[in-house]
């Protein structure tokens, strides 16, 4: 187990290193001078030079990359002052420290992800199980068709529709917004209710389909049939035997989804103007804010890779037949 974790972590490091290098070099290949943008209209060459130095972009690009990577682990000193250990530099757009901004935006993304995940897990797994339980009946067809149609909806279409209906026509809810959970739990819940309902549509259908098929597969397994033949009740067998087995493929998909969601749900956050990582990324791309884009990119990639490792490790716990090599 330990060997597996060490090996996978090393692999993850290499991948992150490559991603950071690709992002960094591609961005600096752009013939747009961020210092020129920051300098404004009445720019003198001297002022430009000072700004370049402040931004840390007066050195050759490989050196800049080196300093950037060192900064993440050991911190570095900018003209604005010292930047402690996980230092991703300062935003070109507004000179805020990148790491603080990311930490500031992250709770929004986490709230959106966790709430949305609860909604799509409950609806998706529930519908899938009922469909498998009542296989071939009307309920099965209803859930299968429903999930197909739902999964074909797009957030950028459903989001405004739901908002128009619930907020502007019926006036049931306020416009989505983010209030920290610690400050106002009720406001947090009400503010994120619409985004949760909307973000689940792209995921629920997947989980319905997957849990239905893997449940049907499990119900046909020998050990389930044996348990039933011994005289155990149908419900008990369904939940204790078949359900547990059917979770294995779902855990994989869930890990992947969670990892990518935590890196920022761009379209959802953009649709509802929620200040999360995804919106931060879109905004910084629009502003050519390189340090911010780098920060968000590495942060998101870390989550995706981290959850891949977690999923593989979790396999061994759920299914003892799996040996980690």
């Amino acid at each position: 187990m330990l060997r597996f974790l060490v090996r996978r972590s090393l692999g993850a490091m290499v991948i992150l290193l490559i991603i950071s290098a690709v992002t960094f070099f591609l961005f600096y290949a752009v013939p747009r001078d961020p210092a020129m943008l920051a300098c404004g209209k009445n720019c003198t060459p001297d002022a430009l030079e000072v700004i370049r130095k402040n931004m840390g972009i007066d050195e050759p690009i490989p050196m800049q990359y080196w300093h950037f990577m060192i900064g993440i682990f050991a911190g570095r000193t900018f003209a604005q002052g010292a930047c402690p250990a996980p230092c991703f530099g300062y935003s070109f757009a507004n000179s805020d420290p990148v790491w603080d901004t990311i930490l500031d935006r992250f709770p929004t993304t986490v709230s959106l992800t966790v709430g949305g995940a609860i909604v799509f897990l409950v609806i998706g797994l529930g519908a899938g199980m009922i469909a498998a339980w009542k296989r071939g009946t009307f309920a099965d067809k209803l859930f299968s068709t429903g999930s197909l149609v739902l999964s074909s909806m797009q957030i950028y279409f459903v989001g405004p529709l739901v908002m128009a209906l619930l907020v502007f026509n019926l006036g049931l809810l306020d416009q989505p917004s983010y209030v920290p959970l610690s400050e106002d739990p009720a406001g947090w819940f009400m503010g994120l209710l619409i985004p949760w309902m909307v973000i689940q549509i792209i995921f629920t259908a997947n989980y319905t389909r997957l849990s239905r098929s893997s449940m049907i597969e499990q119900l046909a397994e020998d050990h389930v049939r044996t348990a039933r033949a011994k005289g155990m009740s149908g419900k008990f067998v369904f939940f204790r035997y078949a359900w547990r087995g059917s979770l294995i493929p779902i855990v994989t998909i869930f890990g992947v989804d969670l990892g990518s969601l935590l890196g920022g749900a761009m379209i959802t956050e953009w649709t509802f103007s929620l200040p999360g990582l995804g919106k931060l990324a879109v905004d910084s791309v629009a502003n050519t804010d390189l340090p911010m884009v780098m920060g968000v990119m590495l942060f998101s990639a870390t989550f995706i890779i981290l959850f891949n490792v977690i999923v593989d490790a979790a396999y061994a716990f759920i299914d003892p037949r799996v040996r980690l090599a």
Binding site: I15, I19, V285
Partner: peptide
Amino acid sequence: TDLMMSFPNQLFFVAFTPVIGALLVSP
């Protein structure tokens, strides 16, 4: 393949479409 799969793909699209555009055409 593993490496390409670890890229946050939406973020990658959003970040690199303008970059590659800027490489080819001056702003």
